[in-house]
Each structure stands twice: as structure tokens, then as C-alpha cells.
Amino acid sequence: MIPAHELTGLILAGGEGRRMGGRDKGLEPFAGCPLVAHVGQRFSGQVAELLISANRHTDTYRLYADRVIEDHCAGFNGPLMGLYAGLCAASTPWLLVAPCDTPALPMDLAARLTAGIGAADVAVAHDGERAHPVVALLHTRLAPALRRALDAGERSVAGFYAGQRVATINMADCPAGLTNVNTPDDRARLEATLAREAS
């Protein structure tokens, strides 16, 4: 197990929100709070510091994290650029990552990923059907390799992982916890699912 003081949390909120009509997805309401607030609650007590990677509304995002970081290049450059910014900004050996649109993440996310990483440099959550590359734990020593991959034109998180030591963590017992809220319909479905589970 990796202790909390060796973990920096990173919430990726730098996307364009195209399927949300261009709105800033992390600030979209979900069950009474912005999506990013739910994700932040999932990191609470599990990390030494919480970062949010955002490229707009940074003042608002500062309400939900210890620090807000921006991509090293202007514009919307995808999650791999956000990962790189997080690896560079982290003050601990490990970076625990999740996107801003996964409001039902398991509360023991850090414990699950750290328990299964072994000798790997990356642990990736898997819901039993597919991997979720940006629900992951990464060692910060990967920053130089990721910089080289970005410079070579790599923009796929899975593509970068293909050259690394990766552990896949089975989270098939909580697939709803890895569900992304990409559209208003996704939001309605997940809110209904969680309400049923709570009743």
C-alpha cells in the first residue's frame, strides 16, 4: 500500500465539453453539486494534495482543490497533456488521476489502485468490460517519457501506456463508479441509478 502522503490527486477538467454543448463539464450540476466537487470528495483523505487541471474558469476551480494547474501549451490539448502537467506539478512520488465527469468513483479508489500496482509504474481501473485509462495511478518518474511522447505527436493516453509497465485493476464490482457523464442524458441516468442504490 502507498500512504496518502506519497499521493497527489489530479482531477482532469481541461476538456472542451463538446457533448455538453461546449459547457465546462466539471462545473455542470450533478445531484446538487458541480461534477468536480463529487470527484474531489472521492479524493478526500486519500491524497496529500489535490490538483485540478483546467484551461478555463480557473478561479472557480480553485474552490475545489489545493491548486489549479493549466496545460503547458495553450488551448484544449486532451487528457495526455493534462496528465503531463500533473506529473510535473506533483510534489509526491505518485499521481492519482480521475476525470471530472466520474462523480460516483469508489471512495476507496486510492486503496484499490495502490494495492494492485505491484512493480508497475501505472495502475489502470477496469470495469470488467473495458479499461478507463484516466482513472489511474502513475509514478511521477514517467514525466520525461511522457514529454518525449508528446513531442513525438502522441495524444492517446492508452498509446502512451503501451510503452510502460501497466497493472490493470479489476473494479467490476462497481462499474457505476467508473461511469462518465458525457451528456445530459448520461447525467440523468447516473443520477437515477445512484438514487435507486441509495433507497
Rank of each mutant, 00 (worst) to 15 (best):
L63G: 10
A104M: 04
G78D: 01
W94E: 13
A54D: 02
D121Q: 12
H126S: 15
R130H: 14
C73Q: 13
I117G: 08
A89W: 03
Y61F: 10
G159I: 09
R67F: 06
N77T: 02
D71H: 11
D121Y: 05
L142E: 10
H126Y: 11
V97T: 13
P79Y: 05
C100N: 09
M107W: 12
C88K: 05
G82H: 02
P93A: 09
A123L: 09
I117H: 04
A98N: 14
P93R: 10
C88P: 01
L63K: 15
D151V: 07
L80K: 00
P133V: 06
P106Y: 14
R62H: 12
W94C: 11
G118L: 05
V135P: 03
G78T: 01
L146R: 00
E70D: 09
G118A: 06
N77W: 02
V157P: 01
T60G: 08
I69V: 13
L150R: 00
Y64N: 09
C88T: 05
D151M: 07
R141V: 13
T92R: 13
A74I: 04
A110E: 06
H57V: 06
G75T: 03
A131L: 14
V122D: 08
S91L: 11
L63W: 10
E129R: 15
I52V: 07
S156Y: 13
H72D: 06
A65N: 07
A85Y: 01
M81H: 13
G153V: 02
P99W: 09
Y84A: 03
E154T: 04
I52T: 03
A125P: 04
A136Q: 07
F76R: 15
D108W: 10
E129G: 13
P144N: 03
T58F: 07
G118T: 05
E70K: 12
S91D: 12
P99K: 08
L87Q: 00
G86S: 06
P133W: 08
Y84W: 11
P99M: 09
G116Q: 15
I52R: 02
G78N: 01
P144Q: 02
G86K: 04
G75Y: 01
G116K: 13
R56N: 04
A85L: 01
A85K: 00
G116C: 15
P99N: 15
A143I: 02
D127Q: 13
D66T: 12
D101M: 08
P79R: 05
A111E: 14
M81N: 05
T92A: 14
D66Q: 11
A104N: 04
T114E: 09
A115M: 07
T60N: 08
A74E: 06
V68I: 10
P79D: 11
P99G: 12
A90L: 07
H57P: 02
H132S: 07
A145H: 01
L109A: 14
L83P: 00
L80W: 00
H72T: 06
C73Y: 07
L87F: 01
M107G: 15
G86D: 05
T102K: 11
T114F: 10
V135L: 06
T58E: 15
A123D: 07
L137R: 10
L96R: 13
E70Q: 15
G116I: 08
L83C: 01
G128Q: 11
R112H: 10
V68N: 06
P103D: 03
